[in-house]
Design a protein around this nucleic acid. Structure first.
Lengths: 247, 247
DNA sequence: TGTACATCAGTGAACGCGCGTTCACTGATGTAC
DNA sequence: TGTACATCAGTGAACGCGCGTTCACTGATGTAC
Protein backbone atom coordinates (compact mmCIF):
# COMPACT_ATOMS: atom_id res chain seq x y z
CA UNK A 1 0.00 0.00 0.00
CA UNK A 2 2.58 2.55 1.03
CA UNK A 3 5.53 3.43 -1.06
CA UNK A 4 8.54 2.01 0.69
CA UNK A 5 9.61 4.91 2.84
CA UNK A 6 13.15 3.80 3.49
CA UNK A 7 14.19 2.29 0.24
CA UNK A 8 14.79 -1.38 0.78
CA UNK A 9 15.38 -1.38 4.51
CA UNK A 10 12.97 -2.23 7.24
CA UNK A 11 10.70 0.82 7.48
CA UNK A 12 11.00 0.98 11.25
CA UNK A 13 14.75 0.50 11.49
CA UNK A 14 17.03 3.43 12.25
CA UNK A 15 18.09 5.47 9.23
CA UNK A 16 21.48 4.50 7.92
CA UNK A 17 22.53 7.48 5.86
CA UNK A 18 21.98 11.20 6.14
CA UNK A 19 19.78 10.89 3.10
CA UNK A 20 17.56 8.45 4.93
CA UNK A 21 17.32 10.74 7.87
CA UNK A 22 16.24 13.65 5.72
CA UNK A 23 13.75 11.45 3.95
CA UNK A 24 12.17 10.35 7.20
CA UNK A 25 11.94 13.89 8.40
CA UNK A 26 10.34 15.16 5.23
CA UNK A 27 7.89 12.29 5.31
CA UNK A 28 6.93 13.34 8.79
CA UNK A 29 6.61 16.96 7.69
CA UNK A 30 4.36 16.06 4.79
CA UNK A 31 2.13 14.06 7.08
CA UNK A 32 2.01 16.91 9.53
CA UNK A 33 0.93 19.44 6.94
CA UNK A 34 -1.56 16.97 5.51
CA UNK A 35 -2.96 16.25 8.94
CA UNK A 36 -3.38 19.96 9.58
CA UNK A 37 -5.20 20.42 6.29
CA UNK A 38 -7.39 17.45 7.03
CA UNK A 39 -8.25 18.85 10.44
CA UNK A 40 -9.00 22.25 8.94
CA UNK A 41 -10.96 21.40 5.81
CA UNK A 42 -11.80 17.72 5.86
CA UNK A 43 -10.75 14.79 3.76
CA UNK A 44 -12.47 15.87 0.57
CA UNK A 45 -10.44 19.05 0.45
CA UNK A 46 -7.12 17.33 0.96
CA UNK A 47 -4.97 18.20 -2.04
CA UNK A 48 -1.43 17.25 -2.93
CA UNK A 49 -0.91 20.57 -4.67
CA UNK A 50 -1.89 22.59 -1.63
CA UNK A 51 0.34 20.48 0.59
CA UNK A 52 3.21 21.07 -1.83
CA UNK A 53 2.44 24.78 -1.80
CA UNK A 54 2.57 24.90 1.97
CA UNK A 55 5.88 23.04 1.98
CA UNK A 56 7.23 25.21 -0.84
CA UNK A 57 8.06 22.35 -3.10
CA UNK A 58 6.73 21.18 -6.42
CA UNK A 59 3.66 18.93 -6.44
CA UNK A 60 5.50 16.21 -8.28
CA UNK A 61 8.08 15.98 -5.51
CA UNK A 62 5.48 14.49 -3.20
CA UNK A 63 5.41 11.42 -5.38
CA UNK A 64 8.81 10.52 -3.97
CA UNK A 65 7.08 9.99 -0.65
CA UNK A 66 3.58 8.81 -1.41
CA UNK A 67 2.59 7.03 -4.54
CA UNK A 68 -0.76 8.79 -4.83
CA UNK A 69 -3.24 10.95 -3.04
CA UNK A 70 -5.09 7.87 -1.85
CA UNK A 71 -1.90 6.50 -0.40
CA UNK A 72 -1.39 9.66 1.63
CA UNK A 73 -5.00 9.62 2.74
CA UNK A 74 -4.59 6.03 3.88
CA UNK A 75 -1.66 7.05 6.03
CA UNK A 76 -3.73 9.82 7.57
CA UNK A 77 -6.64 7.51 8.25
CA UNK A 78 -4.35 5.06 9.96
CA UNK A 79 -2.91 7.86 12.05
CA UNK A 80 -6.39 8.94 13.06
CA UNK A 81 -7.37 5.44 14.08
CA UNK A 82 -4.15 5.08 16.01
CA UNK A 83 -4.54 8.40 17.77
CA UNK A 84 -8.07 7.57 18.85
CA UNK A 85 -7.02 4.11 19.99
CA UNK A 86 -4.14 5.54 22.02
CA UNK A 87 -6.51 7.96 23.63
CA UNK A 88 -9.01 5.26 24.53
CA UNK A 89 -6.35 2.97 25.93
CA UNK A 90 -4.82 5.70 28.03
CA UNK A 91 -8.21 6.44 29.54
CA UNK A 92 -8.75 2.76 30.23
CA UNK A 93 -5.36 2.44 31.88
CA UNK A 94 -5.97 5.51 34.02
CA UNK A 95 -9.34 4.13 35.08
CA UNK A 96 -7.70 0.83 36.01
CA UNK A 97 -5.13 2.64 38.14
CA UNK A 98 -7.71 4.78 39.89
CA UNK A 99 -10.19 1.95 40.31
CA UNK A 100 -13.69 2.84 41.41
CA UNK A 101 -15.98 4.28 38.83
CA UNK A 102 -14.97 1.86 36.10
CA UNK A 103 -13.66 2.12 32.60
CA UNK A 104 -16.89 2.66 30.70
CA UNK A 105 -17.55 6.30 31.63
CA UNK A 106 -13.86 7.15 31.54
CA UNK A 107 -13.20 5.67 28.13
CA UNK A 108 -16.39 6.94 26.58
CA UNK A 109 -15.66 10.46 27.78
CA UNK A 110 -12.16 10.24 26.38
CA UNK A 111 -13.51 9.12 23.02
CA UNK A 112 -16.01 11.96 23.00
CA UNK A 113 -13.31 14.48 23.86
CA UNK A 114 -11.16 13.18 21.04
CA UNK A 115 -14.05 13.44 18.60
CA UNK A 116 -14.79 17.02 19.59
CA UNK A 117 -11.13 17.92 19.23
CA UNK A 118 -10.85 16.14 15.86
CA UNK A 119 -14.23 16.35 14.14
CA UNK A 120 -12.94 15.74 10.64
CA UNK A 121 -10.93 12.76 11.75
CA UNK A 122 -13.99 11.44 13.54
CA UNK A 123 -15.90 11.81 10.28
CA UNK A 124 -13.18 9.87 8.53
CA UNK A 125 -13.39 7.04 11.03
CA UNK A 126 -17.10 6.82 11.79
CA UNK A 127 -18.76 9.07 9.22
CA UNK A 128 -19.89 8.29 5.74
CA UNK A 129 -17.24 6.48 3.75
CA UNK A 130 -15.42 8.53 1.13
CA UNK A 131 -16.91 7.34 -2.15
CA UNK A 132 -14.50 5.54 -4.42
CA UNK A 133 -12.00 5.11 -1.66
CA UNK A 134 -11.41 1.96 0.31
CA UNK A 135 -9.96 2.24 3.79
CA UNK A 136 -6.81 0.22 4.37
CA UNK A 137 -7.15 -3.19 5.93
CA UNK A 138 -4.78 -2.19 8.69
CA UNK A 139 -7.50 -0.15 10.40
CA UNK A 140 -8.83 -3.38 11.83
CA UNK A 141 -6.21 -3.39 14.55
CA UNK A 142 -6.72 0.10 16.02
CA UNK A 143 -10.45 -0.36 15.63
CA UNK A 144 -10.27 -3.42 17.82
CA UNK A 145 -8.11 -1.56 20.31
CA UNK A 146 -10.77 1.11 20.73
CA UNK A 147 -13.51 -1.42 21.24
CA UNK A 148 -11.37 -3.43 23.62
CA UNK A 149 -10.54 -0.40 25.74
CA UNK A 150 -14.23 0.30 26.15
CA UNK A 151 -15.52 -3.18 26.57
CA UNK A 152 -12.54 -5.06 27.94
CA UNK A 153 -13.49 -4.59 31.60
CA UNK A 154 -16.60 -6.64 30.94
CA UNK A 155 -14.42 -9.66 30.39
CA UNK A 156 -13.28 -9.26 34.00
CA UNK A 157 -16.87 -9.31 35.17
CA UNK A 158 -17.19 -5.63 35.97
CA UNK A 159 -15.74 -3.65 38.86
CA UNK A 160 -17.22 -5.82 41.56
CA UNK A 161 -18.14 -8.81 39.50
CA UNK A 162 -21.68 -7.56 39.25
CA UNK A 163 -21.96 -7.87 35.48
CA UNK A 164 -25.54 -8.21 34.33
CA UNK A 165 -25.68 -11.60 32.69
CA UNK A 166 -29.44 -12.07 32.61
CA UNK A 167 -30.67 -13.23 29.25
CA UNK A 168 -34.30 -12.22 29.81
CA UNK A 169 -35.88 -10.84 26.66
CA UNK A 170 -33.43 -12.47 24.29
CA UNK A 171 -35.11 -12.77 20.92
CA UNK A 172 -33.86 -15.74 18.89
CA UNK A 173 -30.87 -16.63 21.10
CA UNK A 174 -29.22 -18.99 18.62
CA UNK A 175 -29.41 -16.67 15.65
CA UNK A 176 -28.08 -13.86 17.77
CA UNK A 177 -25.21 -15.95 19.08
CA UNK A 178 -24.18 -16.76 15.54
CA UNK A 179 -24.59 -13.15 14.46
CA UNK A 180 -22.17 -11.77 17.03
CA UNK A 181 -19.84 -14.76 17.18
CA UNK A 182 -16.68 -12.97 15.99
CA UNK A 183 -17.11 -10.22 18.55
CA UNK A 184 -17.83 -12.67 21.33
CA UNK A 185 -14.77 -14.69 20.51
CA UNK A 186 -12.31 -11.86 20.01
CA UNK A 187 -13.45 -9.40 22.62
CA UNK A 188 -15.63 -11.05 25.21
CA UNK A 189 -14.73 -14.72 25.35
CA UNK A 190 -16.84 -16.83 27.63
CA UNK A 191 -19.50 -14.23 28.23
CA UNK A 192 -23.16 -14.89 27.45
CA UNK A 193 -24.61 -13.69 24.17
CA UNK A 194 -26.90 -11.29 26.01
CA UNK A 195 -23.88 -9.46 27.38
CA UNK A 196 -22.26 -9.29 23.97
CA UNK A 197 -25.42 -7.83 22.49
CA UNK A 198 -25.72 -5.27 25.27
CA UNK A 199 -22.08 -4.32 24.82
CA UNK A 200 -22.61 -3.79 21.10
CA UNK A 201 -25.67 -1.76 21.91
CA UNK A 202 -23.58 0.42 24.18
CA UNK A 203 -20.97 0.73 21.46
CA UNK A 204 -23.66 1.83 18.99
CA UNK A 205 -25.05 4.32 21.48
CA UNK A 206 -21.57 5.76 22.02
CA UNK A 207 -20.83 6.16 18.33
CA UNK A 208 -24.32 7.47 17.71
CA UNK A 209 -24.43 10.07 20.43
CA UNK A 210 -20.99 11.40 19.53
CA UNK A 211 -21.78 11.51 15.83
CA UNK A 212 -25.05 13.30 16.47
CA UNK A 213 -23.19 15.90 18.49
CA UNK A 214 -20.16 16.28 16.23
CA UNK A 215 -22.18 16.34 13.03
CA UNK A 216 -24.36 19.11 14.38
CA UNK A 217 -27.63 17.34 15.05
CA UNK A 218 -28.08 18.62 18.59
CA UNK A 219 -28.32 22.21 17.45
CA UNK A 220 -31.23 23.94 19.19
CA UNK A 221 -32.24 20.59 20.57
CA UNK A 222 -29.80 19.44 23.20
CA UNK A 223 -28.37 22.53 24.80
CA UNK A 224 -25.72 20.79 26.89
CA UNK A 225 -24.50 17.71 25.03
CA UNK A 226 -22.00 16.85 27.75
CA UNK A 227 -24.64 16.35 30.42
CA UNK A 228 -26.78 14.23 28.17
CA UNK A 229 -23.75 12.21 27.16
CA UNK A 230 -22.79 11.44 30.74
CA UNK A 231 -26.32 10.43 31.57
CA UNK A 232 -26.77 8.19 28.55
CA UNK A 233 -23.43 6.50 29.09
CA UNK A 234 -24.24 5.98 32.75
CA UNK A 235 -27.50 4.36 31.69
CA UNK A 236 -25.62 2.09 29.33
CA UNK A 237 -23.14 1.13 32.01
CA UNK A 238 -25.99 0.40 34.38
CA UNK A 239 -27.70 -1.80 31.80
CA UNK A 240 -24.48 -3.76 31.59
CA UNK A 241 -24.19 -3.95 35.35
CA UNK A 242 -21.07 -1.81 35.42
CA UNK A 243 -22.29 0.99 37.63
CA UNK A 244 -21.02 1.57 41.13
CA UNK A 245 -24.50 1.27 42.56
CA UNK A 246 -26.36 -2.00 42.52
CA UNK A 247 -27.50 -2.92 39.01
CA UNK B 1 -33.45 29.49 -1.00
CA UNK B 2 -35.08 27.96 -4.03
CA UNK B 3 -35.51 29.77 -7.27
CA UNK B 4 -39.20 30.49 -7.60
CA UNK B 5 -40.39 27.50 -9.54
CA UNK B 6 -43.62 28.94 -10.81
CA UNK B 7 -42.77 32.49 -11.53
CA UNK B 8 -44.76 34.68 -9.24
CA UNK B 9 -47.53 32.30 -8.35
CA UNK B 10 -47.88 30.17 -5.28
CA UNK B 11 -45.48 27.29 -5.82
CA UNK B 12 -48.01 24.69 -4.78
CA UNK B 13 -50.94 26.04 -6.76
CA UNK B 14 -52.08 24.32 -9.94
CA UNK B 15 -50.27 25.34 -13.10
CA UNK B 16 -52.08 27.97 -15.08
CA UNK B 17 -50.57 27.74 -18.50
CA UNK B 18 -49.14 24.90 -20.57
CA UNK B 19 -45.77 26.49 -20.03
CA UNK B 20 -46.19 26.15 -16.29
CA UNK B 21 -47.18 22.54 -16.64
CA UNK B 22 -44.10 21.75 -18.72
CA UNK B 23 -41.95 23.59 -16.24
CA UNK B 24 -43.26 21.61 -13.32
CA UNK B 25 -42.73 18.37 -15.17
CA UNK B 26 -39.17 19.20 -16.13
CA UNK B 27 -38.43 20.25 -12.58
CA UNK B 28 -39.66 16.88 -11.47
CA UNK B 29 -37.57 15.14 -14.10
CA UNK B 30 -34.43 16.99 -13.08
CA UNK B 31 -34.98 16.03 -9.47
CA UNK B 32 -35.56 12.43 -10.47
CA UNK B 33 -32.33 12.19 -12.42
CA UNK B 34 -30.47 13.99 -9.66
CA UNK B 35 -31.91 11.68 -7.03
CA UNK B 36 -30.83 8.66 -9.05
CA UNK B 37 -27.32 10.02 -9.37
CA UNK B 38 -27.21 10.78 -5.68
CA UNK B 39 -28.35 7.26 -4.86
CA UNK B 40 -25.78 5.79 -7.22
CA UNK B 41 -22.66 7.86 -6.52
CA UNK B 42 -23.30 9.96 -3.46
CA UNK B 43 -23.66 13.67 -2.90
CA UNK B 44 -20.06 14.59 -3.66
CA UNK B 45 -20.37 13.21 -7.18
CA UNK B 46 -23.56 15.09 -7.95
CA UNK B 47 -22.89 17.25 -10.99
CA UNK B 48 -25.08 19.63 -12.93
CA UNK B 49 -23.27 18.78 -16.12
CA UNK B 50 -23.87 15.07 -15.83
CA UNK B 51 -27.53 15.66 -15.02
CA UNK B 52 -27.81 17.83 -18.11
CA UNK B 53 -26.10 15.14 -20.15
CA UNK B 54 -28.55 12.54 -18.97
CA UNK B 55 -31.47 14.80 -19.81
CA UNK B 56 -29.90 15.75 -23.14
CA UNK B 57 -29.97 19.42 -22.52
CA UNK B 58 -27.31 22.03 -22.07
CA UNK B 59 -25.85 22.54 -18.59
CA UNK B 60 -26.85 26.16 -18.57
CA UNK B 61 -30.49 25.26 -19.08
CA UNK B 62 -30.63 23.83 -15.56
CA UNK B 63 -30.18 27.32 -14.23
CA UNK B 64 -33.74 28.04 -15.27
CA UNK B 65 -34.82 25.55 -12.62
CA UNK B 66 -32.27 25.72 -9.86
CA UNK B 67 -30.15 28.72 -9.13
CA UNK B 68 -27.04 26.68 -8.28
CA UNK B 69 -25.75 23.23 -7.53
CA UNK B 70 -26.23 23.86 -3.83
CA UNK B 71 -29.83 24.81 -4.43
CA UNK B 72 -30.46 21.51 -6.17
CA UNK B 73 -28.67 19.63 -3.44
CA UNK B 74 -30.82 21.34 -0.85
CA UNK B 75 -33.92 20.15 -2.66
CA UNK B 76 -32.58 16.62 -2.67
CA UNK B 77 -31.73 16.75 1.01
CA UNK B 78 -35.20 17.95 1.82
CA UNK B 79 -36.65 15.13 -0.26
CA UNK B 80 -34.52 12.61 1.59
CA UNK B 81 -35.61 13.92 4.97
CA UNK B 82 -39.21 13.89 3.84
CA UNK B 83 -38.99 10.38 2.47
CA UNK B 84 -37.50 9.06 5.69
CA UNK B 85 -40.07 10.92 7.77
CA UNK B 86 -42.92 9.51 5.68
CA UNK B 87 -41.53 6.06 6.12
CA UNK B 88 -41.22 6.43 9.89
CA UNK B 89 -44.70 7.85 10.22
CA UNK B 90 -46.24 5.10 8.15
CA UNK B 91 -44.62 2.50 10.36
CA UNK B 92 -45.86 4.30 13.45
CA UNK B 93 -49.38 4.48 12.07
CA UNK B 94 -49.34 0.80 11.16
CA UNK B 95 -48.12 -0.09 14.63
CA UNK B 96 -50.90 1.98 16.14
CA UNK B 97 -53.49 0.16 14.03
CA UNK B 98 -52.12 -3.26 14.87
CA UNK B 99 -51.56 -2.47 18.50
CA UNK B 100 -49.56 -4.90 20.57
CA UNK B 101 -45.84 -4.85 20.11
CA UNK B 102 -45.58 -1.09 20.14
CA UNK B 103 -44.17 1.54 17.88
CA UNK B 104 -40.54 1.43 18.90
CA UNK B 105 -39.50 -1.80 17.20
CA UNK B 106 -41.73 -1.14 14.21
CA UNK B 107 -40.48 2.38 13.58
CA UNK B 108 -36.85 1.56 14.21
CA UNK B 109 -36.99 -1.34 11.78
CA UNK B 110 -38.61 0.87 9.19
CA UNK B 111 -35.88 3.46 9.61
CA UNK B 112 -33.22 0.80 9.28
CA UNK B 113 -34.84 -0.58 6.14
CA UNK B 114 -34.95 2.88 4.62
CA UNK B 115 -31.29 3.42 5.45
CA UNK B 116 -30.25 0.17 3.85
CA UNK B 117 -32.28 0.98 0.76
CA UNK B 118 -30.89 4.54 0.56
CA UNK B 119 -27.37 4.49 1.99
CA UNK B 120 -26.21 7.68 0.32
CA UNK B 121 -29.29 9.52 1.45
CA UNK B 122 -28.74 8.21 4.95
CA UNK B 123 -25.20 9.55 4.77
CA UNK B 124 -26.60 12.90 3.71
CA UNK B 125 -28.96 13.02 6.65
CA UNK B 126 -26.92 11.45 9.46
CA UNK B 127 -23.41 11.18 8.08
CA UNK B 128 -20.61 13.69 8.10
CA UNK B 129 -21.76 17.10 6.92
CA UNK B 130 -20.72 18.10 3.42
CA UNK B 131 -17.94 20.64 4.02
CA UNK B 132 -18.75 24.14 2.88
CA UNK B 133 -22.40 23.35 2.54
CA UNK B 134 -25.09 24.28 5.01
CA UNK B 135 -28.24 22.18 5.12
CA UNK B 136 -31.45 24.15 4.68
CA UNK B 137 -33.32 25.24 7.78
CA UNK B 138 -36.42 23.44 6.55
CA UNK B 139 -34.96 20.08 7.54
CA UNK B 140 -35.98 20.82 11.10
CA UNK B 141 -39.54 19.82 10.38
CA UNK B 142 -39.03 16.36 8.87
CA UNK B 143 -36.32 15.71 11.45
CA UNK B 144 -38.83 16.32 14.19
CA UNK B 145 -41.35 14.11 12.41
CA UNK B 146 -38.90 11.19 12.47
CA UNK B 147 -38.12 11.64 16.12
CA UNK B 148 -41.80 12.04 16.97
CA UNK B 149 -42.76 8.86 15.14
CA UNK B 150 -40.23 6.93 17.18
CA UNK B 151 -40.71 8.55 20.51
CA UNK B 152 -44.27 9.80 20.35
CA UNK B 153 -45.80 6.72 21.97
CA UNK B 154 -43.86 7.53 25.12
CA UNK B 155 -46.00 10.59 25.56
CA UNK B 156 -48.98 8.25 25.84
CA UNK B 157 -47.25 6.34 28.60
CA UNK B 158 -46.35 3.26 26.60
CA UNK B 159 -48.60 0.47 25.34
CA UNK B 160 -49.99 -0.39 28.73
CA UNK B 161 -48.99 2.67 30.63
CA UNK B 162 -45.95 0.88 31.98
CA UNK B 163 -43.43 3.53 31.01
CA UNK B 164 -40.32 3.37 33.13
CA UNK B 165 -40.26 6.68 34.95
CA UNK B 166 -37.75 5.84 37.66
CA UNK B 167 -35.11 8.49 38.03
CA UNK B 168 -32.61 6.28 39.85
CA UNK B 169 -29.05 7.00 38.81
CA UNK B 170 -29.74 10.47 37.50
CA UNK B 171 -26.51 12.42 37.60
CA UNK B 172 -27.02 16.14 38.08
CA UNK B 173 -30.80 16.22 37.53
CA UNK B 174 -31.13 19.99 37.22
CA UNK B 175 -28.34 20.40 34.69
CA UNK B 176 -29.73 17.55 32.67
CA UNK B 177 -33.24 18.94 32.72
CA UNK B 178 -31.95 22.23 31.36
CA UNK B 179 -29.81 20.43 28.79
CA UNK B 180 -32.69 18.57 27.21
CA UNK B 181 -35.37 21.17 27.80
CA UNK B 182 -36.23 21.84 24.13
CA UNK B 183 -36.71 18.13 23.45
CA UNK B 184 -38.76 17.62 26.55
CA UNK B 185 -41.02 20.50 25.68
CA UNK B 186 -41.50 19.77 22.00
CA UNK B 187 -41.61 16.00 22.00
CA UNK B 188 -42.28 14.64 25.45
CA UNK B 189 -44.18 17.26 27.40
CA UNK B 190 -44.85 16.42 30.99
CA UNK B 191 -42.53 13.45 31.16
CA UNK B 192 -39.69 13.24 33.69
CA UNK B 193 -36.19 14.19 32.64
CA UNK B 194 -35.01 10.63 33.14
CA UNK B 195 -37.39 9.45 30.43
CA UNK B 196 -36.29 12.19 28.05
CA UNK B 197 -32.66 11.20 28.56
CA UNK B 198 -33.43 7.53 28.01
CA UNK B 199 -35.37 8.38 24.87
CA UNK B 200 -32.46 10.39 23.53
CA UNK B 201 -30.18 7.49 24.41
CA UNK B 202 -32.40 5.20 22.39
CA UNK B 203 -32.37 7.67 19.53
CA UNK B 204 -28.56 7.76 19.62
CA UNK B 205 -28.40 3.98 19.72
CA UNK B 206 -30.71 3.77 16.71
CA UNK B 207 -28.73 6.26 14.64
CA UNK B 208 -25.48 4.70 15.77
CA UNK B 209 -26.31 1.10 15.05
CA UNK B 210 -27.71 1.93 11.63
CA UNK B 211 -24.75 4.10 10.72
CA UNK B 212 -22.30 1.43 11.83
CA UNK B 213 -24.06 -1.05 9.59
CA UNK B 214 -24.60 1.20 6.59
CA UNK B 215 -21.12 2.68 6.70
CA UNK B 216 -19.57 -0.77 6.70
CA UNK B 217 -18.32 -1.08 10.26
CA UNK B 218 -19.86 -4.46 10.93
CA UNK B 219 -17.79 -6.17 8.24
CA UNK B 220 -16.32 -9.41 9.59
CA UNK B 221 -17.58 -8.46 13.00
CA UNK B 222 -21.33 -8.70 13.15
CA UNK B 223 -22.37 -11.37 10.71
CA UNK B 224 -26.11 -10.77 10.91
CA UNK B 225 -26.77 -7.10 11.56
CA UNK B 226 -30.52 -7.58 11.51
CA UNK B 227 -30.55 -9.91 14.51
CA UNK B 228 -28.30 -7.67 16.51
CA UNK B 229 -30.42 -4.68 15.57
CA UNK B 230 -33.62 -6.28 16.75
CA UNK B 231 -32.02 -7.31 20.01
CA UNK B 232 -30.49 -3.93 20.74
CA UNK B 233 -33.70 -2.10 19.93
CA UNK B 234 -35.65 -4.52 22.12
CA UNK B 235 -33.22 -3.76 24.94
CA UNK B 236 -33.74 -0.04 24.42
CA UNK B 237 -37.50 -0.46 24.43
CA UNK B 238 -37.26 -2.50 27.61
CA UNK B 239 -35.13 0.16 29.29
CA UNK B 240 -37.86 2.63 28.47
CA UNK B 241 -40.53 0.31 29.76
CA UNK B 242 -42.07 -0.15 26.32
CA UNK B 243 -41.72 -3.89 26.00
CA UNK B 244 -44.68 -6.24 26.01
CA UNK B 245 -43.29 -8.09 29.00
CA UNK B 246 -43.00 -6.53 32.40
CA UNK B 247 -40.30 -3.86 32.51
C1' DT C 1 42.03 9.56 -0.54
C1' DG C 2 40.26 9.86 -5.21
C1' DT C 3 37.73 8.70 -9.08
C1' DA C 4 33.61 6.58 -11.81
C1' DC C 5 29.28 5.31 -11.54
C1' DA C 6 24.60 4.48 -9.58
C1' DT C 7 20.98 6.14 -6.96
C1' DC C 8 17.91 9.30 -5.58
C1' DA C 9 15.44 14.09 -4.65
C1' DG C 10 13.42 17.63 -6.58
C1' DT C 11 12.09 20.74 -10.69
C1' DG C 12 9.13 22.72 -14.10
C1' DA C 13 6.36 22.20 -17.82
C1' DA C 14 2.66 19.94 -19.58
C1' DC C 15 -1.61 16.91 -20.17
C1' DG C 16 -6.21 16.08 -19.69
C1' DC C 17 -10.01 16.23 -16.82
C1' DG C 18 -14.58 17.83 -15.36
C1' DC C 19 -16.51 21.12 -13.01
C1' DG C 20 -19.88 25.50 -11.90
C1' DT C 21 -21.27 29.46 -13.82
C1' DT C 22 -22.00 33.51 -17.11
C1' DC C 23 -23.59 35.64 -21.21
C1' DA C 24 -25.42 37.11 -25.50
C1' DC C 25 -28.39 34.90 -28.47
C1' DT C 26 -32.61 32.63 -30.90
C1' DG C 27 -37.01 31.05 -31.14
C1' DA C 28 -41.15 29.72 -29.06
C1' DT C 29 -45.03 30.63 -25.87
C1' DG C 30 -48.07 33.71 -23.65
C1' DT C 31 -50.64 38.33 -23.14
C1' DA C 32 -52.93 42.79 -23.99
C1' DC C 33 -55.28 45.49 -26.96
C1' DT D 1 -59.48 36.94 -34.82
C1' DG D 2 -55.18 39.39 -35.46
C1' DT D 3 -51.31 42.00 -34.41
C1' DA D 4 -47.37 43.96 -31.28
C1' DC D 5 -44.92 43.21 -27.55
C1' DA D 6 -43.18 40.87 -23.31
C1' DT D 7 -41.79 36.86 -21.17
C1' DC D 8 -39.50 32.83 -20.86
C1' DA D 9 -36.81 28.25 -22.20
C1' DG D 10 -33.04 26.59 -24.00
C1' DT D 11 -28.50 26.94 -26.73
C1' DG D 12 -23.61 27.02 -27.41
C1' DA D 13 -19.46 29.02 -26.61
C1' DA D 14 -16.49 30.51 -23.32
C1' DC D 15 -14.10 31.54 -18.72
C1' DG D 16 -11.45 30.25 -15.04
C1' DC D 17 -10.59 26.98 -11.68
C1' DG D 18 -7.79 23.44 -9.33
C1' DC D 19 -6.90 19.07 -9.49
C1' DG D 20 -3.84 14.35 -9.91
C1' DT D 21 -0.39 12.62 -12.41
C1' DT D 22 3.50 11.97 -15.89
C1' DC D 23 7.91 12.86 -17.79
C1' DA D 24 12.41 14.23 -19.17
C1' DC D 25 15.68 16.75 -16.81
C1' DT D 26 19.44 18.51 -13.42
C1' DG D 27 22.15 18.29 -9.59
C1' DA D 28 23.28 16.41 -5.28
C1' DT D 29 24.26 12.39 -2.32
C1' DG D 30 25.94 7.87 -1.69
C1' DT D 31 28.86 3.66 -2.99
C1' DA D 32 32.45 0.58 -4.88
C1' DC D 33 36.86 0.02 -6.31
Amino acid sequence: VFLARNGKTDPVSAPRSARDRVRQELTREILEVARAQLARDGAAALSLRSIARELEMSPSALYRYFSSRDDLLSALILEAYGSLADCAEEAAAAARRLGGVGAWPAVSRAVRAWAIAHPHEWALVFGSPVPGYEAPEATVIPYARIAAALVGPLAAGGPEGQLNTTAAGLLRPDTLAAAVQPVAEALLPGLPTAVVARALGGWAALIGIISLEVFGHWRNTVLDPGSLFDQVMADQARALGLSGEAG
